[in-house]
Design a protein around this nucleic acid. Structure first.
Lengths: 185, 185
DNA sequence: ATCAGCATGTAAGGCGTTACATGATTCA
DNA sequence: TGAATCATGTAACGCCTTACATGCTGAT
């Protein structure tokens, strides 16, 4: 498995439930997973090729049910082993890259109103994402007793909780900026 | 300014307050900024070179106060303009890449205890970071009326608020996993 | 004497984004 | 007929991480 290419374990994790094509994998990454991990075709297809060479996954018979040919992949025993090994590793990199916070930090180089506007843009964005996550949550609550759904549910509630914290912060931040604007400057 | 190289605006933002060397910039990125943006020498020095060629920053006289030579950089008018332009742009990419959530999502491939342990590791990590942010906050509160400190303060409270939300989620998540463990499986 | 900290930089290599190329089917 | 969706893939290009190279000063 490639050293720094984390898409490998994403693929293994998805394939541990069902056989999927590269196209399917991309769709999964555009769903709930997309809130904490992204992927692109230019990322996925080369990974599938090299992972098959390494014996972590195997190609299944290509089918042609409408549209172009389909190439579903299946996880091998070796792949399952690699997935488990990764899950047991203690270190995990959790990275945040928020341009909004960068703009906030350097807000002093512009008018106060620019920062407030940037916070509002961020707020709207968070609200949109929050609405999506809440529909995911509702759907999952109905089938929480099904295998593994509790894990999906927990990642979704993680997203909801943090986004709600973001919104509270937005309100506070705008208030603070307004007050300082009026009384100090 | 390079299209996708966001380190450029970080450098401009930092230089908008004071002249800094590449080494200084790295140190700033290892501090409070590091919670939402990272940088490395192999990232910073090449950016400084090309930004000087573009006229966004200028070299000041090198000094030699102890250790090796120092090359401080100064922001130019053009650089200030570029910084302001960036601040006014509406789009901002806010990306989260949390391996912990990935491990949680695919937790079904291993024993329930592995997931609980991964949450605990995450929790400890968050607690450590939270402690650091709280000292930053205390220091900033004493000088909140100074120029721009309100912006630094807000980024720090953003971090504190989200980390506190993380901790609450960790408690809930562990409880839920324990309960389902005992009653359903 | 040697280690840590100050300070600048380069090189290799990997990874990811974006855009492009291709092509079939279904539906309006 | 044309657009949308299904589906696979490549190529260019840029960016970043990591490791390495260099060398001074001050403290232990």
């Amino acid at each position: 498995m490639a050293k720094d290419r984390k898409i490998d374990v994403v693929i293994l994790g998805l394939l541990s439930h069902e056989d999927l094509t590269g196209y399917d994998i991309k769709k999964r990454l555009d769903g709930a997973i997309g809130f904490f991990w992204k992927g692109s075709y230019g990322n996925i297809y080369p990974a599938l090729t090299s992972m098959e060479e390494e014996g972590l996954i195997s190609k299944k018979k290509t089918t042609k049910t409408g549209g172009r040919e389909k190439i579903p992949y299946h996880i091998t025993k070796q792949g399952t082993k690699a997935l488990r090994k990764w899950l047991q590793e203690e270190q995990a990199s959790n990275e945040l890259k928020y341009e909004t916070l960068l703009k906030l930090y350097f807000g002093g180089a512009e008018d106060r109103s620019v920062t407030i506007r940037n916070i509002q843009i961020f707020e709207e964005d968070v609200k949109r994402n929050l609405a999506v996550l809440k529909t995911y949550k509702e759907n999952l609550e109905r089938v929480l007793d099904e295998e593994d759904h509790i894990f999906y549910y927990l990642t979704v509630t993680f997203g909801i909780d943090t986004y709600e914290a973001y919104l509270k912060w937005c309100t506070k931040a705008k208030m603070l900026l307004d007050n300082y604007d009026n009384s100090c400057i």
